[in-house]
Design a protein around this nucleic acid. Structure first.
Lengths: 161, 161
DNA sequence: ATCCCTGCAAAATATTTGCACTGAT
DNA sequence: ATCAGTGCAAATATTTTGCAGGGAT
């Protein structure tokens, strides 16, 4: 898909709103930032800083990894993206708009997106009983997907993570 | 009744069972391992590898940090401890027995232990509807504790994690 | 012209690993 | 006597930061 510019879909509105948000906050709209935002919007999923970096490299080889990190930090401060730690290693970034829970299989690494209604009740209870306000979009649940669960039942010691 | 004449508390059973588990698996019971196990049992909470290391330093200054990591890895393989990633930075370790959910405040870092019953229903639903088996003890929920939530409501800086 | 953003390198943080030696069994 | 475990140093992996120059406004 050609991104930035033609058949604008809903997603592209994000790019425009982001650009405006940057300006509103006295920031500067640079090629690097546009590239990072485009990469995230384009991926429409969960991408690590390094994955974003790699995507960008194809078209803009001079954008440095540290710039990606700094841009992500800036975007997070603007509320455009949010990062989540999915266990070991890298954090992944996704659009703040894209509200959902991440279920991470600790065996194969698969990420399942659970509909929000599944966790809504839990969130309300946590709030009512413990005064804890869940940041839904920053909340990942670790466990085993169907296949890995079956495999481990059968008995084999895997245990990565 | 059970325990031999010494004033054994429930927690001490863990140490003994662990020692036995190590032997059963052809491992060796060394001062380093005993120290690490003792430190975890003693802390009865959430400790990072480095915190365990520091606790041990007092009495056994020659135990190296890498030994702590390797011991923790071994203990995890034996099913004695489990580690959880609570967001940025360090992982924390706790006894496998000590089953509970960790609620982590992303602002102040406070860890709240939620009773298991709160999340039981969610776990059942995830299993029934998505075929996802939550590893309860490896599951942390990120959000804001009461105080930080109120403070952020009042307006102010965004922040850490 | 300002000063935010960037490239680059080096630091910081967290964890792992190669190697030779020591100690538990 | 064996070989798992350890100390130590160096390597990894991920993210952050200091500095000086460049580009957006």
């Amino acid at each position: 898909m050609s991104a930035a510019g033609t058949g604008q879909v809903a997603a592209n509105g994000i790019l425009e709103r982001t650009v405006e948000a940057i300006r509103t906050h006295g920031g500067r709209v640079t090629p690097s930032r546009l590239a990072v935002i485009a990469a995230i919007v384009d991926s429409e999923g969960h991408v690590s800083a390094e994955e974003i970096f790699e995507r960008i490299q194809a078209s803009s080889p001079d954008i440095h990894l540290s710039t990606v990190y700094r841009t992500l930090e800036a975007l997070e401060k603007l509320g455009v993206v949010e990062h989540v730690h999915l266990g070991h290693g890298r954090a992944i970034y996704h659009l703040e708009e894209n509200l959902h829970q991440h279920l991470v299989c600790e065996s194969c690494g698969t990420i399942i997106e659970a509909p929000h209604d599944l966790t809504e009740r839990l969130e309300m209870e946590l709030e009512a009983r413990l005064g804890f306000f869940t940041r839904a979009h920053h909340f990942s649940i670790i466990g085993l997907c169907r296949e890995c669960h079956r495999r481990e039942q059968g008995g084999g010691s895997t245990s990565p993570d």
